[in-house]
Simulated scan of single mutants.
Amino acid sequence: MAQYDALLVVSFGGPEKPEDVMPFLENVVRGRGVPRERLLEVEAHYQGVGGVSPINRQCRELIAALEPVVGLPIYWGNRNWHPFLADTMRRMAADGVRRAAAFVTAAYSSYSSCRQYLDDIAAAQAQVPGAPRVVRLRHYYDHPGFLAAMTEHTQAALERLPEAHRGDARLVFTAHSIPVSMAATAGPSGGAYEAQLRTAAARVAGERPFDLVWQSRSGPPQVPWLEPDVCDHLTALASEGVKAVVLVPIGFVSDHMEVVYDLDTEAAAAARELGIHLTRAATAGTHPRFVSMVRELLDEPEPAACPATCCPAPRRPGAPASRS
């Protein structure tokens, strides 16, 4: 069992009022060549729901659920919005924290879901004299706690369908699309992002057939990204005569903007037009098994550090303008 002074919850961050939206998006894409038109498009999505991302509120809810469970001081730092990681690192150093475990709100291997978090933690440490050592807890896509939470939420979504359609409803698992080149280099030997997602989806689906599709693409159109897109897939399913679908956002751990907009707004509208009965499973959120999973991760031996060659930064000039 590893010994830690504190738990650091590391997340993407998101705006909490309308005037935060564009500065937040500029933080996300700084130096990546994302067109201004794309930022304005994403800004409109935020402003359409009041200019507030759900992700910070959900981080606070997760921390509140963790406090009676983990037995450690809990700190919270974001990559792209307040509370920024560097500010949190200063608080930790001032409080005398010397060795912290980092729980990242992304379960899978890829540059954007792992390496970029490690790089941002290192950058924050470099700004703070006496910053604590930070150990990233392992990827948890296959942890029984995460899988139990997603299985229960998937079953609940199935039960919200009309009874006549529950038996033959298609399970459609979704995750954030990434460039094909990034997917090819995910993990120590490449391909880990897709492989891990398929593993998690298969375990949640059990004996039911399922599909794994992608959402939230935002990069340059000339760069190949993982496909099919969830809305395109719904169209294909309708042409096959599928009448009911449960969307399972297996690639996410909270119901943030990419879930709320891309699934609850865009995909839901597509399903209505296609005549498909659609429900959406909740993400792991603050499910008790997901919360207890964090305690169990803390009790495991310290995970090995990722090799320096694992999940390298993409070499292309553009990068995704993520929404969270």
Rank of each mutant, 00 (worst) to 15 (best):
M1G: 13
Y4L: 02
D5A: 05
A6R: 01
L7V: 02
F12P: 07
E16D: 13
D20N: 14
V21P: 08
M22A: 04
N27P: 05
R30W: 07
R30G: 07
G31Q: 07
G33W: 09
V34Q: 09
P35D: 06
L39M: 15
L39F: 07
E41K: 06
A44S: 15
A44L: 00
Y46M: 10
Q47M: 14
G50F: 08
G50E: 09
V52R: 15
V52D: 11
N56T: 14
C59V: 15
C59L: 06
L66E: 05
L72T: 05
L72R: 03
P73M: 06
I74N: 08
Y75Q: 10
W76E: 13
W76L: 08
N78L: 04
H82A: 08
D87S: 14
T88I: 04
A93D: 10
D95F: 01
G96V: 00
R98G: 13
R98K: 15
A100T: 04
F103T: 05
V104T: 14
T105V: 13
A106E: 12
Y108M: 13
Y108S: 07
S109N: 14
S113W: 00
C114G: 00
R115M: 04
R115A: 11
Y117Q: 06
I121N: 10
A123S: 14
A123C: 00
A126G: 11
R138P: 05
H139A: 07
Y140A: 03
A149G: 08
A149S: 15
T151V: 01
Q155T: 11
Q155Y: 01
A156P: 03
A157H: 11
L161Y: 10
L161C: 01
P162I: 10
H165A: 12
R166W: 03
A169G: 09
L171W: 06
T174P: 01
S177L: 00
P179D: 11
V180K: 12
A183V: 00
A186P: 04
S189F: 01
G191L: 03
E194V: 14
E194R: 14
E194P: 08
A195V: 00
A200T: 13
A201F: 04
A202C: 02
R203G: 02
G206D: 08
D211A: 11
W214P: 05
Q215E: 07
S218Y: 03
P224M: 03
W225F: 09
D232H: 03
L234M: 10
A238M: 02
S239N: 09
E240K: 13
V242W: 02
V246L: 08
L247I: 13
V248P: 06
F252S: 06
F252M: 11
V253M: 05
V253I: 10
V259H: 06
V260L: 14
T265Q: 15
E266Q: 12
A267Y: 02
I276V: 11
R280P: 08
R280L: 11
G285N: 15
H287E: 09
P288H: 10
V291W: 06
M293K: 06
L297F: 02
E300Y: 04
P301V: 03
A305Y: 02
P307F: 05
P307V: 05
C310S: 13
P314Q: 10
P314T: 03
R316G: 13
G318V: 02
S322T: 12
R323V: 14
